[in-house]
Amino acid sequence: MLFHSILGLRPVEHAIAAAFQADGHTVTLPDLFAGKSADNYDDAFALRKSVGTKAIMERAQVAVKAAPPEAVLSGVSFGASLTGEFWTDRPQMAGAILFAGIAEWMLPPTPALPISVHIARPDPFDDEEYFADWVAQKGEANLDMHRYDGAGHYFLDSSLDDYNEGAAKLCLDRSRAFLKGL
């Protein structure tokens, strides 16, 4: 399960899914904004507001319910935060991958749950203390935190100024290895 960013379901999420599918994984890409997307963050926040939290959460819930209990939850930025809405209710999930954002921890964090996180450093939306506090709350979760110096927030998306080719390749390589190891 790969939840898209605040920008909506765009070619970059399809490319991430295709990389995982090339390794034999089945990937679900829920379209939480019903076909709408934005080209910049200001328009994206307005789009999210116009779609509405209720509709977004209903679409996400339908997608998660349809996924096998052991499915890996994944998301980009806003989509990463959505994983936190569901992982508490999925004790059999095999792991999580969070790109360009984090999620509220389940309480308590599931012991040994493999979680791979990929965040720019610095990230323009959250300061370093925010990430340090989050890591400190991981409990016994098996957290693998990757930071990408000098990359933009959504460094995987080549259509954005955030894009960093080297960071994007390394992130995808690490994510594919993470999935292979589950």
Score class of each variant (00 low, 15 high):
residue 126 D to S: 09
residue 151 A to C: 09
residue 47 L to R: 01
residue 88 T to S: 14
residue 73 L to Y: 09
residue 154 Y to A: 11
residue 121 R to C: 05
residue 71 A to T: 09
residue 90 R to S: 08
residue 66 A to C: 03
residue 50 S to V: 06
residue 143 L to I: 15
residue 127 D to N: 12
residue 65 K to G: 04
residue 99 F to W: 14
residue 124 P to K: 02
residue 142 N to S: 13
residue 64 V to F: 10
residue 59 R to L: 11
residue 130 Y to C: 09
residue 77 S to Y: 01
residue 124 P to R: 02
residue 150 G to R: 02
residue 72 V to L: 04
residue 67 A to P: 01
residue 53 T to D: 12
residue 111 P to R: 06
residue 99 F to P: 13
residue 124 P to F: 13
residue 96 A to R: 10
residue 82 L to I: 07
residue 55 A to V: 14
residue 130 Y to M: 13
residue 87 W to V: 03
residue 76 V to R: 04
residue 69 P to W: 05
residue 56 I to Y: 02
residue 78 F to W: 06
residue 89 D to C: 06
residue 59 R to M: 06
residue 65 K to M: 14
residue 131 F to W: 10
residue 64 V to Y: 12
residue 111 P to V: 11
residue 132 A to S: 13
residue 57 M to S: 04
residue 109 P to I: 03
residue 128 E to H: 11
residue 86 F to N: 03
residue 95 G to F: 00
residue 118 H to L: 07
residue 47 L to A: 00
residue 106 M to R: 06
residue 154 Y to T: 00
residue 136 A to E: 15
residue 78 F to N: 01
residue 148 Y to S: 08
residue 108 P to Y: 08
residue 82 L to M: 11
residue 99 F to N: 05
residue 136 A to C: 06
residue 146 H to G: 04
residue 87 W to H: 14
residue 150 G to C: 02
residue 117 V to D: 04
residue 73 L to E: 07
residue 92 Q to F: 11
residue 152 G to A: 00
residue 153 H to Y: 04
residue 74 S to R: 05
residue 152 G to E: 02
residue 132 A to C: 07
residue 49 K to E: 11
residue 92 Q to C: 03
residue 114 P to A: 00
residue 62 V to N: 15
residue 88 T to D: 15
residue 74 S to P: 04
residue 146 H to D: 07
residue 87 W to G: 08
residue 146 H to N: 13
residue 134 W to P: 10
residue 54 K to Q: 14
residue 96 A to P: 05
residue 80 A to Q: 05
residue 146 H to F: 14
residue 68 P to C: 00
residue 69 P to F: 00
residue 49 K to V: 00
residue 79 G to C: 01
residue 144 D to S: 04
residue 114 P to C: 01
residue 132 A to Y: 13
residue 116 S to E: 11
residue 124 P to I: 09
residue 90 R to G: 03
